[in-house]
C-alpha cells in the first residue's frame, strides 16, 4: 500500500463517498440468494422466463448498489456467474461507463468480461503491468482454441 501511494495519485472531485469492494464471495452470495428466492416463489414462472428473470434480478441488485458516484472494485466476479449473467454484468458496466459518474476496477479470468467495450486492459505478470488487448491474452486464446476444436484441444492439453 505504501509503495502504491508513491505511484498512484487519487484524483476525484467531489470526494468519493460511495463505492464497493466486491469479492467473488459477494457475487456468489447474491447469486445464491436470488436462486433461493426464485425457488421459494409460489408463482414461479416457467424455466425460460426464470433464467431471464434471474439475470434481471441480479443486475437490478447490483445496479441499485452501483448507481451512485463511486469507485467499484470487482475481484473475479465471473466465479459466480453463468455466461449469460456475465453478459448482463457487461451491460451494467456499460451503463455505469455511460453514466460518467462511476469507475470500475476489475480483475477477471473471463474472456467475456475482458472484452468490455471501452475498458483499458492491463496484464499483470512478475515483470509488472502492461497494457494488453483481450485477444492477446492466454485466457482468450485458450478458449478460442478449445471452441475451434474441443477434441483436438483436449487431446493436446491432457497428453
Amino acid at each position: 500500500g505504501a509503495a502504491l501511494a508513491n505511484t498512484f495519485r487519487g484524483h476525484w472531485l467531489p470526494k468519493v463517498t460511495a463505492g464497493w469492494f466486491f469479492r467473488a464471495e459477494s457475487f456468489y452470495s447474491v447469486a445464491r440468494y436470488l436462486d433461493q428466492a426464485a425457488l421459494e416463489d409460489p408463482f414461479r414462472p416457467p424455466p425460460d422466463f426464470l433464467s431471464w428473470s434471474h439475470g434481471e434480478g441480479f443486475i437490478r441488485f447490483f445496479e441499485e448498489r452501483c448507481r451512485r458516484q463511486g469507485i467499484y472494485i470487482l475481484d473475479e466476479p465471473e466465479s459466480a456467474l453463468s455466461p449469460s449473467r456475465q453478459i448482463e454484468l457487461l451491460k451494467m458496466l456499460q451503463r455505469m461507463d455511460q453514466s460518467g459518474t462511476a469507475q470500475v476496477i476489475m480483475a477477471t479470468h473471463s474472456p467475456l468480461l475482458m472484452a468490455c467495450p471501452g475498458a483499458r486492459l492491463f496484464r499483470v505478470s512478475r515483470f509488472g503491468l502492461e497494457p494488453a488487448d483481450f485477444r492477446d491474452t492466454d485466457h482468450f486464446r485458450m478458449l478460442r482454441d478449445f471452441s475451434n476444436d474441443p477434441d483436438g484441444f483436449l487431446d493436446e492439453a491432457l497428453y
Binding site: 498512484f8 463505492g19 464497493w20 469492494f21 468490455c116 483499458r120 486492459l121
Partner: peptide, 29 residues
C-alpha cells in the same frame, strides 16, 4: 481491467487500491 495468471498478485493489487480509496475489505464507503 486486470488479467493475469493465478498468483500474480491481482487481488493484492485490488486490495491496495481499495485501501487507497478508503474501503474496508469487502465493504463499502
Amino acid at each position: 481491467i486486470i488479467v493475469g495468471e493465478n498468483g500474480t498478485g491481482k487481488s493484492t493489487l485490488l486490495e491496495a487500491i481499495g485501501a487507497l480509496a478508503g474501503y474496508d475489505e469487502a465493504g463499502g464507503g
